[in-house]
Design a binder for these strands. Structure first.
Length: 565
RNA sequence: UGGGGCGUCGCCAAGCGGUAAGGCAGCGGACUUUGGAUCCGCUAUUCGGGGGUUCGAAUCCUCCCGCCCCAGCCA
């Protein structure tokens, strides 16, 4: 499933090359292999879009395979969430839902085969000793005492490992490769460890578990995968990946590595995301500030906008940090066309139309989506007392501020022109509590018969008709573009943005929003796109989350200090 | 330091010996009942740096510099 014509990239070049020389009988078969030890994030989305996208473009298949070889950290809830997220993104693995744990038996047999070929042995070293014997980056390692064991003894020992005769960590099965190989991964890597842990799928059937290196390539092979696409850190594993498959003499997929995604102002490491969740820095994996797929979904992002983003960022081998502005841009472009408009005042400032008849009200026609006339119009109540956005009024405005201020005329969207005649202040604090205006009855609907047109159009809500609501605004989770870039001795968590969440309790919405369905997306005119939250909304009392702001030229002017130029 | 990778505009990224695509961001301007949207225009004589090969190089060779990954019985 793709939304745009696939961009060319080096992975496609490799596949095209393989196809050109007739490899794999012309098949293209990929897989997305998550470990169910956390929720999927936007970086996984890149991999999902790549793998499923490639399969679709080449008329091939893409499997969903859970790489569940470490029972200590894996849970069914993670499996559940991963499936939900992949599906939500719009991809279908059909009947190809696989688990590395389903291959434990075959993996064991492959190991026996390797032992028979003299390519693996049972090692008695402790974990610390294995590390010590591995040697250093510059110096060779030492051979394990068990390295010289004969095939029969190894077979016997390995069978007894499986049978549970040895305590956890007491023995490992290792490949016999080369303790002096400059690539540390080739220095007799561990294939199996003894670990009496309950596996969420195989239960207590096994007390030995295969390592990633032993399980991954063989799993790919078993599934007939042709191109095993993974991230750059696995590049040094490729010689090992190939070595096993060649020794075993079985189908050998081609491993291709690409640069994982980094997004600005957030972290994309499962370990760090887990910390944020476990230590309560956020309200769970789907906290709208998180970079997880579930958080983006809850916040109101669309699957298409994420797919589009993944297509746009490209696939290459250079480490990079993509600006979140690119993600937001695609989202806005979609939502601009699809989200119905509504008026909502986040920080209400009372406006009294002194020449509007007291006690009366009327209904005005408002366009639901200017980008899509087919969406029609709705009625919005209007009366003498209104609320406008506090930010839309300034008693003593700078030169470039052309919203409401004393003596100035503005347009109320789809309603009337009004002119500010005065303010009422709290005598104690001096705070402006009310603004007085007169409206021009001749401008009903927002057009003046004489053709004049105010510089600003404000959104508004009728005080007596508006419904109160809670609205949550979000800013980036971290203050730094790269949260991992730390000052001396600093912790990455010190880069968390204390203002990433702002809860506004007293917002006022136009009445129609009371019926907003949980999960529905809206554009609050002049403010941004908002989503009625699925978790917090109550019937008749929705809670809105800001998905993304609208482009805000005024905010940019203020930020750059040019408001008086 | 051994091995494996990577370095093209502020951020991504094409380019594969023939004389620097595109997107985002930014900046102008037009239009506008969202300071939104839309539309038009501008922004790398230069490809981490130095040598070399060539009629011609970001693309080939070479040396140097910088960044990332590998010493889990994690993935």
């Amino acid at each position: 499933m793709t939304d745009t014509k696939p961009k060319d990239n080096f992975v496609r070049e490799i596949i095209d090359g393989d196809l050109a020389v007739g490899k794999n009988q012309g098949r293209v078969h990929t897989r997305f292999p998550p470990e169910p030890n956390g929720y999927l994030h936007i970086g996984h989305a890149k991999s999902i879009c790549l793998n499923f996208g490639l399969a679709a473009d080449y008329k091939g298949k893409c499997n969903l395979r859970f790489d569940d070889t470490n029972p200590e950290t894996e849970e069914p809830d993670y499996v559940r969430s991963i499936k939900e997220d992949v599906r939500w993104l719009g991809f279908d693995w059909e009947d190809r839902e696989f688990y590395a744990s389903d291959y434990f038996g075959r993996l064991y047999d492959y190991a026996v085969d390797l032992i028979r070929k003299g390519d693996a042995y049972v090692c008695d070293l402790t974990a610390e000793q294995v590390t010590e014997y591995r040697g250093t980056l510059t110096g060779p390692g030492k051979e394990s005492p068990g390295r010289g064991r004969g095939v029969e003894e190894n077979l016997d020992l390995f069978a007894r490992m499986r049978a549970g005769e040895f305590p956890d960590g007491a023995k490992t099965l290792r490949a016999r490769i080369d303790m002096a190989d400059p690539n540390l991964l080739m220095r007799d890597p561990v294939l199996y460890r003894v670990r009496r842990a309950h596996h969420y799928r195989t239960g207590d059937a096994w007390c030995i578990y295969p390592t990633y290196d032993w399980a991954h390539g063989q799993s790919d092979s078993i599934e007939g995968v042709t191109h095993s696409i993974c991230t750059l850190e696995f590049e040094v594993h490729r010689p090992l990946y190939d070595w096993f498959l060649v020794r075993l003499g079985i189908h050998r997929p081609r491993q291709i590595e690409f640069a994982r995604l980094s997004l600005s102002h957030t972290v994309l490491s499962k370990r760090k995301l887990l910390t944020l969740v476990k230590e309560g820095f956020v309200d769970g994996w789907d906290d709208p500030r998180m970079p997880t797929i579930s958080a983006f979904r809850r916040r109101g992002y669309t699957p298409a906008s994420i797919r589009r983003f993944c297509d746009e960022i490209g696939v290459a081998k250079a480490n990079s940090i993509v600006d979140e502005a690119l993600l937001e841009h695609g989202l806005r472009e979609e939502l601009n066309k699809t989200a119905p408009r509504a008026m909502a005042v986040l920080r209400p400032l009372k406006v009294v139309l002194t020449n509007y008849p007291e006690g009366s009200a009327e209904e005005l026609d408002c366009v639901n989506n200017p980008e899509d006339p087919g969406r029609g119009t709705r009625k919005v109540p209007f009366s003498r007392v209104l609320y406008i956005e506090r930010d839309d009024f300034m008693e003593d405005p700078p030169k470039k501020f052309f919203r409401l201020s004393p003596g100035k005329e503005v347009r109320l969207r789809y309603a009337y022109f009004m002119t500010c005649t005065g303010v009422v202040k709290d005598p104690a604090t001096g705070e402006i509590v009310e603004v007085h205006c007169t409206y021009d009855p001749a401008t009903r609907g927002g057009d003046a018969p004489d053709g004049r047109s105010p510089k600003a159009t404000l959104h508004w809500v009728s005080a007596g008709h508006a419904i109160p609501a809670e609205v949550r605004l979000y800013d980036t989770l971290f203050t730094k573009r790269d949260p991992n870039e730390l000052e001396e001795g600093a912790d990455w968590k010190s880069n968390l943005n204390p203002k990433s969440l702002e809860t506004i309790a007293g917002a006022r919405l136009e009445p129609s929003l009371a019926a907003a369905e949980p999960g529905s997306r809206w554009q609050f005119e002049r403010l941004g796109y908002f989503c009625a939250d699925i978790g917090l909304s109550r019937p008749g009392a929705p809670v809105f989350l800001r998905t993304v702001t609208l482009r805000d030229t005024w905010a940019r002017i203020q930020k750059s200090g040019r408001e008086n130029e």
